[in-house]
């Protein structure tokens, strides 16, 4: 396998805090998911890859060139940062055109590519509105648009699905899959493993600045499924919901937390998420919120790390 990104013992410090702590991984062609809890070092890695930060130790190469100092290589890399900040006073289209022109595209070509990009990400007429009025989802779309407008070989997408509604998530997951199918390479990060598994089987799991697991997703999922996952449900009638969930074979425990919160531990979150909507509809239940806490994923990573 030809490595698109090669990291050997990469370290990055912020004062006394270690952002990356001996991170080593080889990331190959296609889509690779980078999964880890908040603060694991995902964004630090992206910033190192794009040359915004310099590694304090180890070696990091992107497309066969050192990540730090290879400004020319940026023409082949598209980066979508995690943070929501954009140039609020510009329209989305102007923003994409500006960045294309920084890459040396002539005005007419930049405008054409920008239009394609904003249409591809589904920004619609909002592309011609000033970004200070954008929702989180619109900001996310315009950030992705500027990342892919110049046709890069490699896309670095840091939590690209944040702030998007479920329909938007599915749309963009489809886009990423199509891009990979047409020869692009993508490194996509998230703290939610399950939203990435629709797109790829290759995953790198990171926590505390280190790789704890990498490789085929199915193998890792088997290991994860051996460790029950917590799902918190907010409902006005947790006891009735618990009574209905108790017979499910993959539910290992049920716990009440407060008047309207039920914490479910399940060995198979996929099966749980698939079956829950039908149960809610059939029994006319009101489920007002659902979440899977990060600290539980942290527990899983610790489990994987032994």
């Amino acid at each position: 396998m030809t490595a698109i990104i090669s990291a050997v013992n990469v370290t990055k410090r912020y004062g006394e805090v270690l952002g990356l702590n001996g991170f080593s991984a080889e990331i190959g062609p296609g889509i690779t998911a980078l999964v880890g809890p908040n603060g694991a070092g995902k964004s630090t890695l992206f910033r190192l890859l794009i040359g915004q930060l310099r590694p304090d130790g180890g070696s990091l190469t992107v497309l066969d060139r050192p990540a730090w100092g290879s400004v020319g290589a940026h023409r082949e890399i598209g980066y979508c940062p995690e943070g929501p900040a954009v140039y609020d006073w510009m329209t989305g289209w102007e923003f994409v055109v500006y960045l294309l022109r920084l890459d040396g595209f002539a005005r007419a070509e930049a405008e054409r590519r920008a239009l394609d990009a904003v249409q591809t990400v589904g920004l619609g007429t909002a592309a011609h509105r000033r970004m200070h009025g954008y929702s989180k989802g619109m900001r996310q779309r315009v950030k992705i648009a500027q990342a892919l407008a110049h046709g890069p070989r490699l896309l670095l997408l840091d939590e690209p699905l944040n702030g998007l509604d479920p329909v938007g998530r599915v749309e963009l997951q489809g886009l990423f899959t199509r891009l990979a199918g047409s020869g692009h390479h993508l490194l996509v990060s998230s703290h939610v493993l399950y939203e990435l598994e629709r797109m790829t089987e290759q995953v790198v799991m990171i926590t505390n600045g280190r790789v704890v697991a990498e490789g085929n997703l199915h193998r890792l999922r088997a290991a994860l499924d051996a460790h029950p996952q917590s799902i918190t449900l907010r409902t006005p009638d947790p006891r009735r919901l618990a009574h209905l969930l108790a017979p499910w074979p993959h539910v290992t425990s049920l716990e009440f937390s407060g008047e309207d919160v039920l914490v479910v531990r399940t060995r198979s979150p996929d099966a749980f998420y698939q079956a829950l909507p039908e149960l809610v509809t059939r029994e006319h239940l009101a489920v007002r919120g659902m979440s899977s806490p990060d600290d539980d994923l942290e527990t899983v990573f610790r489990f994987l790390a032994g």
Binding site: I50, Q52, A73, A85, Y87, L99, L102
Partner: peptide
């Protein structure tokens, strides 16, 4: 400060 500097520096434009 608002981290928008990442956009121009992630391009192929010399700093």
């Amino acid at each position: 400060e608002d981290d928008t500097i990442v956009y121009p520096v992630s391009r192929s434009l010399p700093r």
